[in-house]
Amino acid sequence: MTRVLHIITGLEYGGAERQLALLLRHMPKDVVECEVAVLTRGGTLAEGIRAEGIPVHEIGMRSNRDVKALPRLVRLIRWGRYDVVHTHLYRACVFGRVAARLAGTPYIIATEHSLGDGHIEGRRTTAGVRMLYRATEQLGDATVAVSPTVARRLRDWGLRPERLVTITNGIDPAAFAFVPESRAATRRALGIAPDEFVVGTTGRLVPGKRVDALIKAFARAKRDGRLLVVGAGPARPALEELAERVGVGGRTVFAGDTGDVAGMLAAMDAYAAPSTQETFGLGVLEALASGLPVLYATCPALDDLPPRMAPGARKLPARLAAWSSAIDSLPQVPLPGAPHGPPPPAVEHYSVHARVHQLIDLYHDGPAAVRPVSDGVLIAKTRAAT
């Protein structure tokens, strides 16, 4: 039995947080025993993880510079005697690697979820940010990139290729399968009529997600309907004010944080992801798993695949005119039906089950569980392939 402590900055709604919750749900408990340490406080996902029987420890860090949290984290790691410490997100990677090294953890790995082009988790990648990242990266044994795009960016930062492992994010296709009853119930709860056309988006409400651009494009579009914004974050008040200012406040539904992403997707007729700074594009894959037509600006998960793998997804430039025109061109839903079709091949390609086995190999075999591929990026191999 391998004991693993996952350290993450927070557990509110977000792609990295949901990905961790998904991996924990599918990790075989007779092979790997997992616990979670959240640096700040438990959010929406914490209770769901606890409900799976997985302990969640709240460290109570108050800010990025709250160094008093470090000894608390070191004590937890020493007390738990974990075989592996696995960190997620920038702050947790910096503090978690230091704490794990001080606690004498045998094996330390990190997953890089959110390294964009010139930013990481919404902050600019200044020289200081890069220097701190590289310095603490040396305290670990391996760094996992969630896409080949992220792996290339990490190499550009100066991380050694032999320390990089590419294990893409995963998705549970069955969890997002379209359910008509869920569509009806979610629409009733949100006050959306059965015959209204709904364009939606999901994700943490921060400037980098460009939900403001989607609101403006929706306001410029000619078709009637609703805009459904799912997620929480510091940008919500400004987005609500923007919707009122451009005249779509009454047609925009801010659903807030939710543990039922599948139900929210079922309530939609199309999905929009206007962010131009994505490291994977998990929301796009979840929408495709629900059978929705998708408009997106950037999605490495799809961009790294042949076009035929996601025929229902349409890539758009960042211009507002392109987005408003695309919204107008979305197919009208025949009442009382919905446009949810079968998931495209891209969804099964990213099935979470293969990712779980790759991580188990990494936990058990360390760097020996990786092999080089043609572009020099390292990827984990599954036991099934060996």
Rank of each mutant, 00 (worst) to 15 (best):
P161F: 12
L164Y: 00
V165Y: 03
T166Q: 13
T166C: 15
T168L: 11
T168P: 05
D172Y: 04
D172A: 13
P173N: 07
F176C: 11
F176A: 11
F178W: 11
F178M: 07
V179I: 14
E181I: 02
E181Y: 02
E181R: 13
S182K: 15
S182D: 11
S182T: 14
R183T: 09
R183I: 06
A184N: 02
A185G: 09
R187N: 05
A189L: 08
G191C: 12
G191F: 10
A193W: 00
P194L: 08
D195T: 14
D195C: 06
D195V: 02
F197N: 01
V198C: 01
V199D: 05
V199H: 06
V199M: 00
G200M: 05
G200D: 06
T201Y: 00
T201N: 11
G203C: 04
G203H: 09
G203P: 12
G203Q: 05
R204T: 11
R204K: 13
R204L: 06
R204A: 04
L205M: 14
V206S: 13
V206F: 03
P207V: 04
V211C: 07
V211R: 07
D212V: 07
A213Q: 13
A213H: 12
A213M: 03
A213W: 04
R220K: 13
R220E: 14
R220F: 09
R223A: 09
D224R: 15
G225K: 10
L227Q: 05
V229M: 04
V230S: 00
V230E: 01
G231I: 10
G233A: 03
P237A: 04
A238S: 11
A238P: 08
E240A: 14
A243C: 12
G247N: 08
G249W: 09
R251G: 06
T252Q: 04
V253S: 08
F254W: 13
A255Y: 11
G256I: 08
A262P: 10
A262H: 11
A262E: 03
A262G: 12
A262K: 08
G263A: 13
M264D: 05
L265R: 06
A266K: 00
A267Y: 09
A267Q: 10
M268V: 06
D269K: 05
A270H: 04
A270V: 03
A270D: 02
Y271A: 00
A272L: 09
P274G: 03
Q277K: 14
E278V: 12
T279N: 14
F280V: 11
F280R: 12
G283T: 13
V284C: 07
L285P: 06
A287E: 02
A289Y: 10
S290A: 15
P293Y: 12
P293C: 06
P293F: 10
V294H: 07
V294N: 04
L295T: 07
A297T: 15
